[in-house]
Design a binder for these strands. Structure first.
Lengths: 149, 149
DNA sequence: CTCTTTGCAAATCTTTTGCAACTTG
DNA sequence: CAAGTTGCAAAAGATTTGCAAAGAG
């Protein structure tokens, strides 16, 4: 299989010394191309089209590698982990009803300052972060507003 | 069993319409008295001294009720949930080595402003939050600094 | 008396691991 | 070649659920 060597995913693999197997690249690209914060199952489903024999364990292992390399971020939830293709500081708006997770970038400057500040603490060496708000997205709030008139 | 009716835990139960069974009060007090962000197992162990027959399922169910009522916050992690007796906005410093979670309150004013700001969004109804930094605590950073000289 | 909670066991789910065969660097 | 990966199946945990008995309001 010929593999493009110049895209962001390939570059990230190079920089982090990850082996560039077709499966791993497909998994990394699937997450990178998806801003819905997919679950492991989601990723497996996305990739299965091109790699029908790929096992769920491989998806788990690869996602773990990518998280350890800092290429993506994982967001553990009670019902299973979600993956965020953007590991830089931003807020996640998490809907408890429909499970949607939307990035809010309006607060990035504030969070960047905050991260810098916490990173300079002598008593803690920062290497990751997570900023979540939980609640109801617009459409779920609407649904709940007038359920049984 | 006679139950004090004036402490914060009892009050929270009243306000949220939770039944005040001895088991539930003990679980709530165990979490309230612990600032280490205990796991479900931790809570079970703490309460077993007084209630030897209490099952893990009861701990799970009760903690869920308390989270739903907003009395405590849960922090899902890959290895299981941790519980935070302080549901108000603050930063958690999570050590990836030893698993310690320490509250950092220096940033509370900033987070309170941030929370107010996000809460006023027309497209999202906030009812919870989570602000984590991951990395190494002082003592784990020290251990890693000179492992094999 | 009614509805909730408890305790125990079984069931579900998510995530990790052991291993042999196969690839990548 | 040597070390890292893949697939598959089994294992390990974490969390939930079904039910009958007990308890709270």
């Amino acid at each position: 299989v010929t593999i493009k060597t110049s895209d962001p995913v390939s570059r990230a693999f190079r920089e982090h010394g990850l082996r560039r197997t077709p499966q791993r690249l497909a998994i990394a690209r699937a997450v990178a191309a998806n801003d819905r914060h997919p679950t492991v199952q989601d990723v497996h489903t996305m990739v299965r089209g091109d790699f029908p024999t790929m096992s769920l364990a491989t998806v788990y292992n690869t996602l773990r590698s990518l998280v350890n390399a800092g290429v993506i971020a994982d967001l553990p939830f009670a019902g299973g982990a979600r993956f965020d293709s953007d590991p830089s500081p931003h807020i996640n708006l998490v809907c408890s009803d429909c499970g949607s997770i939307v990035d809010a970038h309006e607060y990035d400057p504030m969070l960047t300052r905050l991260t810098r500040s916490v990173s300079s603490r002598p008593d803690f060496r920062v290497d990751g972060h997570r900023f979540d708000f939980y609640g109801r997205c617009a459409s779920c709030a609407r649904d709940t507003a007038k359920p049984a008139p």
